[in-house]
Design a protein around this nucleic acid. Structure first.
Lengths: 178, 178
DNA sequence: TTTCGTTTGTTTCAGTTCTAAGTAATTTAG
DNA sequence: CTAAATTACTTAGAACTGAAACAAACGAAA
């Protein structure tokens, strides 16, 4: 007796009210196992959307988009990165990285640098101004995230991380053929 | 000794390689608790992105966008819904619902109906054609999702769902003031 | 009851953020 | 040396968002 309503939580949002509860049944999946997997998929999306809402509210204060913050964050913690490396971390398309770095470069927070060993490649690196900004906004952001997760005990957070990791890793090398 | 590199996984994507592993440290958060919360946030995003990639690959076969499928899915399992209700389920902005329903209406998969009790409101409902489509594509999609989750045991899926639900619910009614 | 202010439900529109596909410049492999 | 792969960038346009507009409903007060 379980139910399935779309996970769909690509996000930002106006103020959106939605339920993390599992709604009542209507057109049932065939097996219990299927229902369980579908429900998990719904809840995974909604939980992620909930946390993201909190993260975005904080980031938005500083006139940064999520994508912009993601770039700054990666560079802040990893130092200069090739645009390709950055792409893998931030999970956008190649055009998306170019777009985001362009925007941040306009704001003088990030700069491009040549790569001596490969003239096709470019590094993106924080400027002094960018580093300064992150010094200022990252610590409170980290607190906001910690706070968002505070309903879970340390053990629960560890368990949750472990399960999500197991799930993610299992899909990591999967190849889908037609 | 933990590390933090952005969670940032809104998204679709080209073929993107990324790691669900936790990368090595560099500019450390101050406390263990903070680090744990940040790592969880990263992994949550990446796991969601991994599953989403699988889901999208399947949905894409049928020439539907994720948003479109989300709408169809909600209507398929819940029957006709007011656009506002649909918005809450699908987690898009008000303009987004209008946009998606318009597109599906063009394809004759969905139609708008009047609401007798409130002339401002509209129902969205599947057409016969839309229902037929979902009868055909939903069952295999459910299998794809079940398969994507198959690395986890039944107990693990239940535990994971429970933890995510707890997290999501805790954020559900939070109000953020300036 | 009529009227006015507020709230609710949807749409419109302009602008933002992103993707996909294609291009150019290298580098690497055979 | 050539062919294939890699890397970033460009472009067109898809998929959204947020704000404002609009229409209808609601509630309280005159």
């Amino acid at each position: 007796m379980v139910d399935w309503t779309g996970p769909w939580g690509h996000l930002r949002t106006e103020i959106m009210e939605y339920s993390i509860e599992v709604p009542a049944e209507s057109a049932p999946p065939r097996t219990e196992g299927e229902a369980l997997a579908l429900r998990l998929w719904v809840i995974l999306n909604r939980a992620k959307a909930s946390v993201q809402r909190v993260a975005e509210a904080d980031i938005g204060r500083h006139d940064l988009s999520v994508g912009e913050f993601a770039i700054l964050d990666a560079l802040y913690h990893k130092g200069p990165l090739l645009l390709g490396e950055l792409q893998k971390r931030v999970l956008v398309s190649s055009g998306g990285v170019t777009y985001l770095v362009d925007r941040l470069a306009e704001q003088k927070l990030v700069e491009r640098r040549e790569c001596p060993s490969d003239r096709r490649a470019r590094y993106a690196a924080l400027t002094a101004e960018g580093t300064e900004l992150m010094d200022r906004i990252f610590p409170p952001h980290a607190s906001v995230i910690e706070d968002a997760m505070s309903a879970l005990s340390t053990k629960e957070k560890r368990d949750l991380t472990g399960l999500l990791r197991k799930l993610g890793l299992s899909l990591r090398n999967e190849r889908h053929f037609d």
